[in-house]
Structures are given as structure tokens and as C-alpha cells.
Design a binder for these strands. Structure first.
Lengths: 237, 237
DNA sequence: ACGGCAAGGATTGCATACGATTTGCGCATG
DNA sequence: CATGCGCAAATCGTATGCAATCCTTGCCGT
């Protein structure tokens, strides 16, 4: 493990430290500071955050439930390395859910919300001008945030939680299989969706969202890359 | 807590006992053997299943993630008492997801699957003839199983997990707010959906599924019945 | 008589200790 | 030199102990 920053979470939440650790690890994973396959030993996580294994374990359990880490009995927890097939399932799920989210959001969104969204998107535009892995990570994160904000105004806590998981895993997949400037096209599409919402055209907004997801997935290179070594050896041998 | 049967899970799974406990509690909750609001103390659960608080706690954590129990810090875990609003969100989510599941299932379902489904449905019919709370619980459970089986043939593990949660919470809601013979109409609708699937008519199957969900929700009496026991006592006294 | 308050009990939150299981390495041996 | 066996290190799974927190309830002052 190589989290450069020893994150101080003493001040953040006096309660539920495992939640804070989950959040920190979650961010590290979807930012790709923790590479897929990285081992997350309970003791290591615990010492990094200066807590006992008990609470570290709880955090890892939560992440396992979210599908961001895979736990093998008596072996440990590892950052999830989603297969292309898993990636396809993730996007299939999003295609199913997000149009509905858009429709629900249309019912409840206010002008203030839309203003807020626009400010957020303009904020993101700054990252697009920059290059480098840090900027790319910020892009991926911000792009996901748009979808999450949309889910939050939809007013359905359950769907919001589903989206939380889907976006997190999508970020992981994009970081793994992403090809190029995902966001350059994705960004304008976010604006287009907002426009449709503002115009009250749910039909169009949903269609745009579908296209948007298609574009994101189309930009991926979903090839079986390094089949865990074992499969490579078997296939080659 | 009053789980009559002290379930023996020593033989079931030599590994991951917390998972077995989760399963047992889960069944008890959706079968309504554990009433909403029931306190699930770590020590009590632990002693019931003859494990330490640690593993009991893990099981409760998982159930909390699924939304079947609500945990209050420093207070304990309680069987979830879904509000009418939560119930509406659950069914809204199902309306969003299940038609997509039907469509996906259509692509992959085999004749054997359909045969299996029919056998299952006929099996359920036995329960319908009986009366009493036990039969009602069995009905609710079986009715949910149909949807879960459908999700499993859809071939999307993520959606399947979402449905797992939605069905579990639906069962809880139906047990809480259900009015009458949910299944009498629901059952025939299951057959109708199967017929549409066998005919390869995804359009119709999805529409039938939507109607089916509508019917289930329509049969609920979604009034704020926040008794909490206190008000019960007051009303009676 | 009523409202605030403090002591007591119960329960969770967390840390640590111990046993179980797996992995990897070294050594003996063919 | 290759191979198989066995031991040791590491890590997880689980139990239990202690401290912190919250609720209850009885008490006292007003």
C-alpha cells in the first residue's frame, strides 16, 4: 500500500471512524491512488489510520459490500480489479437506472439546483485544460459527481445509494480501461442534459443520458488485460 | 427477541458464520418472525447463535447495509420499520429496474428455466389454498422468490444484488402495510409474465411486470402507522 | 407537585489477545 | 540439480476485556 498522505481524520468525524476510513479508502481507490489488486491488509490499514484492526476490518467489509474490494477468506482484502464483463454489467445497470433518475429529477429540480449544477460544471472545466494523471483523476471524479448530484435531487434514497455504488465502480473501470479524453465529450453532454432538464423536456434528457452513458462505455477498451497471470500462462502455454 | 427455533448453523457453513447469521436473521425479518422495531442486541444475537459479539456485530452490519435493520450509535440495532415514504421509494426503484430485468431475462432464458419457473409457481399455489399467518408469510416469500429467480437469469450480478435488497425490503413493507390477498392477483400475474416471456414478447412482459408492481403497491395501505408501541398503549388504554 | 439533575445500569465502541489457516522458504533426499 | 516435505512467518477469524456513551430512574430543590 502506498497512500502517500497519512490522512488525518481525527477532526473530521468524532463518531464512526470506520466510516471515515471507508471514505478515505474509497476516494483513494476511485482516484486510482490505490491500484487494483493492491492488498489491503487489516493491520496495515489499521496502523495507517491509527486504529485497531477491528475498525479497519469494518471499513474493509463495507467496501467489500460496495464491490470496490474483494475479500478472500484467510487471505485478505484486495482492491477490486473489475473484469470487462463486470464493467459491462455496471454500464448495463446504469443504462437501466439513470434515465429513470433523470425523469425523477425533472419532477423535483429547482432553478437553484440548475444554477448550482452549472457552476459545478464550469468549475470542472478548469481541470479539462490541464493535463497529467492528477487532472485526469479529477476529471473522472467530477464527472461522476454530476451523476451523483442528479441522483440526489431525484429524491429517492435507495436509488441514490445504488448510484453511489455504480459511480464508484464506474470510476474504477474508467481508470482501468479508459482510453482517452472521456470528459471532453462527456462534459458537453452534461451541459446538454442540464439544458433539457431546464427546458422541462424529460424525454430528451433521458435520451441524452442514455447516449452519454453509451459514449462513456464506447470510450473504454474492454479487452481482457492480464488475466491474473494464471490465465495468461494457461492461454499461452 | 423471540426466535423460537434456535437455528443450528454449525453444519451449514464451516466458513463465514456471520454470513449464515445474516441469512438467518434476514429470513426471520422478511418472514416477520422478528417484528419491525425489535431490538437486536449484539450480545443477544451472539448468545442465540452461540458466537461472540464480534461475529454477531458483523452480521448486523451487513443487515444495516441492506436496509433491513437500522443501527443507532451507542444504542443498538433494530429491525427496520420502513416508513410509507421509504415504501414508495422501494417500489419506485422496482418499477425502474424490473422491466429492464425482464428484458434482459428474455435474452437469456431457456425453456428449461421456464419449466422450472412453472413448477415453482405451481408449488406456491399450495400455499394459496391455506390460510393463517404462516401461509401468508410463505406466500410473500415465494412471491419474492419469483422476482429473484427472474433477476438471476438476467445474468447481471449487480442488478441481482440490487433486486435482492429490494425484494427483501418489499417483503418487509408488504408484511407491514399489506392489506389482503396480495398473492391471489399477483400469482396469476406471474404466470402471465412467464407466458409473455415464453412467447418472446419482451414488450408485453415488461408491461405486465409494471402492472404487477403497481398492483402490489396498490394493495398496500400506506398510512403513517407510527405506533412505536407507546401510542398503541395509549390508544388501548 | 413539577422540573432539573445526578447516580446507576446496560449496551455499544474499540482494542488487544489467542487460535486457525495459509503461504513461502529452507532443507533433506532421490 | 530437481523435488517433496516440513516448519516458520504472516495474516485472518474470533473471543473477551475495558472504557465511553446513553438511557433510566430516583432524588432534591423550587
Amino acid at each position: 500500500m502506498s497512500i502517500s498522505e497519512q490522512i488525518i481524520l481525527s477532526e473530521t468525524t468524532p463518531e464512526d471512524r470506520s466510516m471515515a476510513i471507508r471514505e478515505a479508502l474509497r476516494n483513494a481507490i476511485i482516484d486510482r491512488r490505490l491500484a487494483p489488486g493492491t492488498k489491503l491488509s487489516e493491520a496495515e490499514v489499521g496502523s495507517l489510520f491509527d486504529v485497531s484492526r477491528t475498525v479497519a476490518r469494518a471499513a474493509l467489509q463495507m467496501l467489500t459490500f460496495e464491490g470496490l474490494v474483494k475479500t478472500e477468506r484467510n487471505r485478505g482484502a484486495f482492491v477490486s480489479n473489475p473484469s470487462p464483463d463486470e464493467a459491462r454489467q455496471i454500464f448495463a445497470s446504469r443504462r437501466l437506472i439513470e434515465p429513470g433518475i433523470v425523469a425523477a429529477a425533472l419532477e423535483r429540480i429547482t432553478l437553484e439546483d440548475i444554477e448550482q449544477f452549472r457552476r459545478q460544471l464550469q468549475e470542472e472545466e478548469r481541470y479539462m485544460t490541464e493535463r497529467g494523471p492528477a487532472a485526469r483523476r479529477a476529471e473522472i471524479k467530477a464527472s461522476g459527481d454530476f451523476h451523483l448530484m442528479l441522483a440526489s435531487v431525484a429524491g429517492n434514497a435507495i436509488l441514490q445509494r445504488f448510484m453511489d455504488e455504480l459511480i464508484a465502480r464506474s470510476s474504477l473501470v474508467i481508470a482501468l480501461y479508459g482510453r482517452s479524453g472521456v470528459s471532453s465529450c462527456g462534459h458537453s453532454e452534461h451541459f446538454a442534459i442540464l439544458d433539457a432538464l431546464q427546458a422541462g423536456d424529460g424525454e430528451r434528457a433521458a435520451a441524452l443520458m442514455l447516449h452519454h452513458i453509451d459514449h462513456i462505455e464506447a470510450d473504454l477498451d474492454l479487452q481482457e488485460k492480464q488475466g491474473l497471470g494464471l490465465k495468461d500462462a494457461l492461454a499461452i502455454g
